[in-house]
Structures are given as structure tokens and as C-alpha cells.
Simulated assay, not measured.
Amino acid sequence: MKLKLVLVEPEGMINFGFILRLSKNFEVDELAVVRPKFQVDHEEVLRFAAQGKDYIEKVKVYESYEEALEGTKVCTSAKVSGTDTVRDFVLPWELKEYVGEPEVLSLVFGRESVGLTREELSKCDLLLHIPASKNYPVLNLSHAVAITLYEVWKQYRLERGNLPQKPSEKDLEVFMRVAGELAERFVGDEVKRERILIGVKRLISKASKSELRSLLYLLSRCSSFLKG
């Protein structure tokens, strides 16, 4: 899937620098900028982009909003409504449920000052809203981009190999067998023993594979020592 970020008339160079960095963090394929209010490769922009400054090569500037849009278009807004069709929304973690796996996913963000107009919103396929305090629901542009890209990353691009491996059912069975042997040796009360083992099982169900194996090694060594 091609991931495209569309910024409509961005106004702040610092925000844009942060967004360059975020685009590199979350592997955005293209950063489309519609009528920016500054030079996109300005020294101030690149300073705040930090190690993401080389991402400037993937930035494309457009004069037309329509020309910048591509594929499945998801607009974003802090202003939403349950009765206004244009402002009917979905939440970031529901995105994949609604749009599936499109060839191109365009995430559209409006101006820092006024966001997107109704006409611009109407050209999108979906409106995405990040819920926040009703007393102050409007997020900074780069913060909204960060939250949205993170949700997209979780739903579409995060590989299991990047995360700690979970133990298999076989690993859990072996661990519980050894734990059961030790509990039977040291806890005479059957009811208490069963309660302890239930607690142990719930605890290890949250462990990673490497954590479980370390605990199993310790229990196995204890069991071997006791056997003599």
C-alpha cells in the first residue's frame, strides 16, 4: 500500500519540520503539500526535521487540492458532528475496518488556523477524528499527524518480528507442568495450590517467550536440585 500524506496550505515551518521527521519514522511514501505558506526546504524546516531532513526529497508541492488527492482519501478534522453527513466521522483505530487495504491511502490534514473547508472535506471518502477533551479538542497539526501515522503503522505496517515474541501453547504447557510439580511438593492444601497455579498461569500469559524461558530455566534448576 502506498501511504500519502497531504497537507493543505501549511502555515508553520516548525510543524512542517516535525512532520518531515514523522514521515521518515512511519515510512510515508509521499508528502504532498498544497500551496505552502513558506519554502518547504527552508533552513528552519530542515533544522526541526533533524534526521528526517533527507525526506525532503519525497516532498511534492501542488497548486491544486484536487491534484494532490489520490486513491482512498481520508480527511481529518477536530470539528465533527453526528448529524452532519460531511462531518460524520470514524476513529483512528477503526480506519482499516472502514477502508480495508487500498492501493493508495491519502491522509489529508488542513491548515493550522482553520483546518479544511466543507468543500475540501466533501472530496474525501472518509472523515477521521482524534477524540480529545471537549474543553480543548483541537490538536496541534504535527501532533495530529503523529497520532494518525502511528495508528496507520499499527494497523498496516507493523510487523510481528518487530515485537517481543509471544510464547507458544507448548511453552506454556511445559512451564505449568514444572510449576505444578513444585507446587505439589511445597503446598499441601489442594485448594490453595490450585489458586496459586491459576495466578501463575495468568501472570505468565502476559510474558514474552524469552521471559518465560528464563523463568522456566530457574524453576527447572530448582526442581532438579530438589530431586537431588
Rank of each mutant, 00 (worst) to 15 (best):
M1I: 07
K2C: 12
L3C: 00
K4G: 04
L7G: 01
L7Y: 05
P10L: 02
I14K: 15
F16W: 09
R21S: 09
K24L: 14
F26G: 00
E27I: 08
V28F: 12
L31M: 13
R35Y: 02
Q39E: 15
H42N: 15
E44R: 15
L46F: 04
L46I: 06
R47K: 15
A50L: 13
A50C: 10
Q51D: 13
G52I: 07
G52V: 08
G52H: 01
K53V: 03
Y55Q: 06
I56W: 08
V59W: 03
E67D: 12
E67H: 03
L69Q: 00
E70W: 09
G71S: 03
T76V: 04
S77M: 08
A78F: 06
A78V: 04
A78G: 01
A78I: 00
V80Y: 05
T83S: 11
T85L: 11
V86T: 13
L91R: 13
E94C: 03
E94T: 06
L95C: 02
E97F: 02
Y98C: 00
E101C: 00
E101G: 00
E101W: 00
P102W: 03
V104I: 12
L105P: 00
L107R: 02
V114R: 14
L116T: 04
R118K: 12
R118L: 13
L121E: 08
L121G: 07
K123I: 01
K123C: 00
L126I: 07
L127W: 12
L128C: 13
H129E: 07
P131F: 02
S133Q: 10
N135T: 09
L139Y: 15
S142E: 12
A144L: 01
V145D: 02
V145M: 03
I147D: 07
I147V: 15
I147A: 10
T148P: 09
Y150S: 09
V152H: 08
Y156Q: 03
L163R: 02
L163V: 06
P164K: 00
E169C: 04
K170L: 13
L172R: 05
M176S: 07
E184C: 01
G188A: 11
E190R: 09
V191L: 06
R193E: 14
R193T: 11
L197M: 03
G199N: 12
V200C: 04
L203W: 12
K206Q: 14
K209R: 15
E211L: 09
E211C: 04
L212R: 00
L215Q: 05
Y217C: 11
R221K: 15
L226E: 11
